[in-house]
Write a protein that binds this DNA or RNA. Structure first.
Lengths: 222, 222, 222, 222
DNA sequence: CATGAATGAGCATTCATTCAT
DNA sequence: AATGAATGAATGCTCATTCAT
């Protein structure tokens, strides 16, 4: 028997394939969860979406809950990654915000279904797997909101922060994004590229719909 | 059966009681659906919330789907009702908008759980009962969006409409509202009265977070 | 509307019927468990035996485990009941033992399948529902053994106790019974009435198979 | 493929290794079957016990059933082997019985888990793999019982056989053994060497617990 | 030989719904 | 009108077994 160096590379390949399959399954799960919600999604549906049979999923995940948890974790990581871009110097806040929105919208474009899941974590608890009656966990969404608030704290110009606390700015920004995501997510608008709306969101965030009192109409607000 | 003078009033009372019970059940269902989603909600859970047993619900509704449909219908009606207020004359657009927001926020306050359900119809399909694979129905939410767009078409000042199509204004307004609803819906903020934020929403809608470049302030980011 | 005393009797009847059904199910379960063991028994098989569908069982028991636990509990109670017979005075130990065996054999006759389950608790852990790897619970069987030992302690004549500790006597008695139960339990011997063997067991317990050294053959045991 | 002188010894070694592995697996299976019963034992559990993965077992056995069958067969063979000892002449029946019990108890000591399985074949059908509803096969245990009866037929002294048919003697002997095996099998008694009880079994078998009436002792129960 | 991956069959359990009372 | 009981149709998950590597 000839001596041969141990083959440490081979198990690595196996692992890579395994990890890749897990990602595939998570991606399929994202589509199904987005379509049917957590309770509404069956292992069989997720499996079918990934071209497997239901029991095969158990080779990769311990349970339906674990699939969902993995999905949320992956999403959170990706979204938070948007904020970890190298901090450019010498650019204005508006440019920086534009950049952020670009990245965010790009991500949404690539991860369409995942996005639905993620944003659903906001309003709707059903996507969260939990024994009925349990306390809801902190949704990944809140993390994102907090991270955005921190971002504003760091980069927003003083006068803006003077008028609005960072958390409020974050909430507002999310609201505006959300509104257009929704439009984009609805089936009929599927074709419209999300990125084009980035500019619009930026403008609305900064200046609103346009204050009529600033234009002509005299307004009697107290 | 002994003869008895016809009492036309009696059946009416019965009907009233019956109708009242239906409303109770719908209200209970709203809480459960908001907490657990459509698939995640069981008839037994809805019944328990309304202090009944599951089979009792079938006296009032044909199915779980019908309960949900009734809930959506009731909500839609209530929300659309906000727009049916007598059209005051001689008030500015901003005053009118303020009025609308006031009514909307008031409704949200009263119908907290229902609100969650309603807004979830936006992003999340799980709340919609449908045989898997069916086309999703037009959610009641879209109706509301359309109605709001129509409202803008009718009342928004020309310059505003020139810059933004009515549907875009509606979407924007909803996004802003949504953002603050969400904050309000999350458990920890439960105490904050929604109405107070009405003013904030109005301001952000009209003027945004404040354009730094427009306000001449030099951006002071590192 | 004429006054009428509250009907406290009705729920009582319901409860009786309910309790009766539980007993029926436990009896059916005993047959199935005896035939196929715990893991080998399916809810569907138990249900079929009791002329129900599997989900119906969940109206009466929370789980398969609970059915089994109820069965063991009921059995233990019945068996221990044998020892609670009124203590007659003025009878010899042998008469008393004969009485005990009679009751025990009678019970075995009436509860044939349950008996198998009960005695299986001795050697075989599979009948015990437990997550694999868990510590086995104290089987009801050991309780019975202990009770029997206590009985010997109380009633056995001094010389017998001097030669054998009570626990040893109990174990011996059980062994002898067991041997004949087994024969009786095996399919081909089904017809032989167990009670007739009671006398034989008594004799073997007291005097053994007959010591050849006591008869003629000289034996060289040290 | 290059020609090579035939090495008739090699395949033999392979076979030996193969056979040895089979034995290892059967021994592991015995432990698992004893602990969890047939239905309760998974291929994975058996494999883990033998430090393999489940599919590896299929290299050695066609199925779970075959593993079990092999186990029972091996056990039966070993137990029957006890009776195949060279028939010594010139010893008394009691000596011969003592010898037999010694061998039997020694085997039980060495094959503890297997023993549980074997004796469970008596009462409990779950250890028997069979399609539900099938007729149970004749358990290996019955073979042993028959062999023992034959042994009594051959060696028991006439007066003993006159009082008890050989099959009854066999049953009685087994009962007594069983009783003390059980005590020995229960976890707390694990330390007690089984062999020491051999003498006790012998005595009880021959003379019973001691007939109070025969020993003239007046029964002193209250 | 041994293993990871994959699957068909099955199983405990849940749930919307029906029905007799 | 309301409920306990019952059930058919899932649904998450397990497991013996096969197969490519």
């Amino acid at each position: 028997m000839k001596a041969r160096p141990a083959r440490p590379a081979r198990p690595a390949r196996r692992e890579r394939v395994h990890a890749r399959t897990k990602e595939d399954i998570i991606a399929s799960a994202a589509r199904v969860f987005a379509r049917d919600g957590f309770s509404g999604s069956t292992m069989e549906a997720i499996a079918r979406e990934a071209d497997y049979t239901a029991p095969a999923l158990y080779t990769y995940f311990k349970s339906k809950d674990e699939i969902f948890a993995s999905l949320v974790e992956a999403l959170t990581e990706e979204f938070l990654g948007v904020f970890e871009e190298p901090t450019l110097s010498g650019i204005t806040f508006v440019q920086r915000l534009e950049l952020l929105l670009g990245l965010l919208f790009g991500l949404a474009e690539r991860r369409r279904e995942a996005f639905v899941v993620f944003f659903s974590l906001t309003t709707n608890q059903d996507l969260l797997p939990r024994k009925r009656g349990d306390q809801p966990r902190v949704p990944g969404y809140l993390l994102l909101l907090e991270r955005t608030a921190a971002w504003f704290e760091q980069f927003a110009p003083k006068p803006m922060l003077a008028r609005h606390p960072a958390s409020e700015l974050a909430q507002f920004l999310f609201g505006v994004c959300n509104a257009f995501f929704m439009g984009w997510l609805s089936p009929e608008n599927e074709a419209t590229p999300l990125a084009k709306r980035s500019k619009l969101v930026l403008k609305l965030f900064l200046s609103g719909a346009g204050n009529p009192s600033a234009t002509v109409v005299p307004v009697g607000d107290r």
